[in-house]
Design a protein around this nucleic acid. Structure first.
Length: 469
RNA sequence: GGUGGGUUGGCGGAGAGGUUACGCACCGGAUUGCAAAUCCGUGAAGACCGGUUCGAUUCCGGUACCCACCUCCA
């Protein structure tokens, strides 16, 4: 059995992964705030965790993994959109419109992540369904002296938790020294954060011991993970930007609410995705969504391949050149494995690479070596370990019947021209194929064709028309 | 200002204290009407300065540059 090793942000070392219960390995990933389409950066932790889950299921068994990823549906931006719709005269209460916006966004999210071949988690809790647990946890934190009520807010007292700052490696004093935010006057310490805050009458709210209000962002994940995975579980993940304050605060809340439990053993953080060397961010306005790419004709499998070709702990730059290269590789591999049954198990080199802190780039190198050896069965079984070359993701690589007919006619025309030693016509057809993204190989057994990166059905149709189809 | 991460061949991108990463591109050969594809093969690296070592791109220290977090963000 493979020993998985993971870099644990909590200990800052790469360590052997030892599950609390090998019969039920439990993971939690911070999911999206569902106010809009997922941008490309959102896809990175999802694909990292997807790979991790596939590996854990490979090692511990398909039924031995519980994967939870939440939807944050308590959020100002969702509220703002709902208020905008209400003002525009859309029927329904504000609560209805908020739920409508969340439902719509969750539907998009599922479509987009499905297109990338990401498996659905076992549980996808929505924050609004766990407000009771959040209130309960907040009450417990007040009762055991880690939180206090002030001006209808409930705040977590960071000075009451010794280890506050340990995950992100900063001291409370350092953070205060560098803080650039204005501190609310009712806070005991500038770093204290909100567990519960009041809601105005025109915003959604829940009744609580502290009046009508809503939960703070951080308590949502603490409550949902505890409800679905228990107070101690194996792996908690997310983007490195969540390390502070979100994950730091989660640890503070969960460890103080459940002092005898360990919360998450392993913390896994992926580095950020960049575009043209800059972080993709809302404030910089250089972000684009997964759907934008899919609509531009970049297949989900190609996006997945590009994402996995950089190790998760390194910044990754998205470029169109990478997407083109990935598309060419996937087409070649799909050609190589066509009609072949996968080997009974993935190649050891691939499992070794993935076991070593999810070295997906190393695993892809091993796939290249299998392809170079012509081991189609091994390539197929190994690529599927990475969620690649799956049958349901290959539609993009197949030509339609119309294209196949046009290509057959053009190949016949080219053969006739060559036999007549009319090389000008033969070469014109060949160049037309290249321009349309059809790759023709002349083998001793006759021509074979396949689609190359950038296949353009319209240009092929024009070419066929020009040569008598 | 505080904290964390990075810097590998033309490009992308891994591992390992001493032996070819891998892919793309390039070059040579086979093949071809010429090509493409394919096959075979050759090149090409580890920011800078020190240290440890028989030996460092790999470990340690410093410098430079880049990125991120400290503020909603995966």
């Amino acid at each position: 059995m493979a020993q998985i090793r993971l870099t644990n942000t909590r200990t800052r070392t790469k360590e052997d992964f030892v599950p609390i219960d090998p019969g039920n390995v439990r993971l939690y990933l911070c999911g999206p705030t569902v106010y809009d389409r997922a941008h490309l950066g959102n896809a990175r932790p999802v694909l990292v965790f997807d790979l991790l889950v596939r590996m854990l299921r490979h090692v511990y068994g398909a039924g031995a993994v519980t994967y939870v990823r939440n939807f944050t549906d308590v959020d100002d931006k969702i509220n703002a959109e709902a208020q905008r719709r209400k003002a525009a005269g859309r029927p329904g209460t504000l609560e209805d419109l908020i739920a409508e916006r969340s439902d719509e966004t969750i539907g998009w999210y599922h479509q987009d992540m499905d297109a990338l071949g990401a498996l659905r988690p076992d549980h996808e809790p929505r924050a609004t369904a766990y407000v009771g647990q959040m209130i309960e946890m907040t009450r417990d934190l007040i009762a055991n002296g880690h939180a206090y009520e002030a001006e209808r807010h409930v705040l977590f007292d960071v000075r009451s938790f010794r280890d506050y700052g340990k995950l992100s490696g900063r001291s409370v004093d350092d953070m205060i020294a560098g803080a650039r935010v204005e501190v609310a006057p009712y806070k005991r310490d500038p770093m204290d954060f909100v567990l519960w805050k009041p809601s105005d009458a025109d915003l959604p709210g829940w009744d609580s011991p502290w009046g009508r209000g809503r939960p703070g962002w951080h308590i949502e994940c603490s409550a949902m993970s505890a409800a679905l995975l228990g107070p101690s579980f194996d792996i908690h993940g997310g983007g490195i930007d969540l390390q502070f304050p979100h994950h730091e605060n989660e640890i503070a809340q969960s460890c103080c609410a459940h002092p005898d439990a360990g919360f998450a053993n392993v913390w896994l953080h992926n580095e950020m995705l960049q575009v043209e060397g800059k972080k993709m961010s809302k404030s910089l306005g250089n972000f684009f969504t997964v759907r934008d790419l899919l609509d531009r004709g970049v297949p989900g499998e190609v996006i997945r391949f590009v994402m996995l070709s950089t190790h998760y702990r390194k910044p990754m730059d998205w470029t169109d050149a990478k997407a083109r290269e990935a598309e060419a590789v996937l087409r070649r591999w799909r050609g190589l494995v066509a009609g072949i049954e996968p080997a009974p198990s993935p190649a050891p080199a691939v499992i070794d690479a993935l076991s070593d802190d999810l070295n997906s780039a190393g695993a892809i190198a091993a796939l290249h070596e299998l392809a170079a050896k012509g081991d189609g069965a091994g390539l197929l079984a190994s690529a599927r370990m990475l969620g690649l070359l799956l049958p349901e993701m290959g539609g993009w690589a197949e030509a339609g019947d119309a294209a196949a007919d046009q290509i057959a006619v053009l190949l016949a025309a080219r053969l006739a021209a060559r036999q007549a030693r009319d090389f000008a016509t033969a070469d014109a057809i060949r160049e037309g194929f290249a321009a349309a993204g059809v790759e023709v190989k002349d083998t001793p057994q006759g021509p074979e064709w396949s689609l190359a990166a950038g296949f353009d059905p319209a240009r092929l149709a024009d070419l066929a028309k020009a040569h008598g189809a």
